[in-house]
Design a binder for these strands. Structure first.
Lengths: 161, 161
DNA sequence: CATGAAACTGGCGTGAT
DNA sequence: ATCACGCCAGTTTCATG
């Protein structure tokens, strides 16, 4: 620690905000298209390409940019049915459920949440009846509540406070 | 009707699956790192760079690849608190809720689901008490049930059947 | 700023229909 | 003969020191 007692929450050196207006514009542009070249980004924010590269690298190292992801349409790869499944673990079964979720390829995400149910999973299957086998696995360790996804009015996007 | 009656469901020419082994490998590689260059992809699948560019373009146009997304850490941009909110609309309020979700910047995704609750939203706020204002908006049109995200044992990934 | 690599384009060969 | 696909070689653009 240099001069101040506590490092800034995001790990940036003192006095330099990770989210000055330029970086905000960079994140906004990259949210719309993560594959924009540094040269193109540079044009939009009015800076040189190396400068932009440097900023993006810092955003990556600081963890502001956690990564880049490929968005595949599950229906196009034979998984047209999606469901959200809440799981309430039996006594002592909590870690097993997280482990099972990790090993189950049909599970695309799993969140530990507060409330009566401890886990919220997103599951993708080829047809409705294929959900049974997945649920059976989780039912070994607790109770499940399932809801099929009928549509997605707001597809995943980056939040803005 | 031997071969040329109806175009294949995905819009690909007859007899050629959009998911032949090569395309599967491309999707797998791009899932791990969507920013791989066409040249690098070409090395991995043993083809030329223009050929893989062509295949990726087709996967994009066919909608198999829906897009590319930037993964930003919400905590790093001042939104460390995430919650899943289920919303049960009052009579006739269903479309208003989808509209409100779309307009609300704190909402990063919204799914229409089966079951007692009609919508499942993911909400990001700077602090727990900031959830109140968001919920108040939705409570104009229905009832809400909220669960805070405590951890994410399986971060979003691409499912594999 | 210079160099090496990678992205786009058009043209040609091949195999299947 | 047609069409879809992949390779090759041209130029332009971009990334890295």
């Amino acid at each position: 620690m240099t001069s101040s007692s506590v490092p800034s929450r995001s790990g940036f050196p003192d006095g330099r905000s990770p989210l000055d207006p330029v970086n905000r514009r960079l994140l906004e542009a990259l949210s719309a298209d993560p594959r924009l070249s540094a040269a193109e980004l540079a044009r939009r924010v009015g800076m040189s390409a190396p400068a932009v590269r440097e900023r993006v690298s810092r955003l990556e190292e600081a963890g502001v940019i956690r990564g880049y992801r490929l968005d595949i349409d599950p229906a196009a790869i034979g998984l047209p049915v999606a469901a959200w499944v809440r799981v309430r673990p039996g006594p002592g079964q909590l870690p097993r459920i997280a482990e099972l979720a990790r090993r189950t390829p049909e599970v695309s995400e799993c969140h530990r949440i507060s409330g009566d149910d401890c886990f919220l999973l997103k599951v993708h299957v080829p047809a409705i009846d294929a959900l049974e086998a997945v649920l059976d696995q989780f039912l070994l360790y607790g109770q499940t509540t399932s809801s099929f996804v009928v549509s997605t009015p707001v597809p995943p996007r980056n939040p803005a406070g």
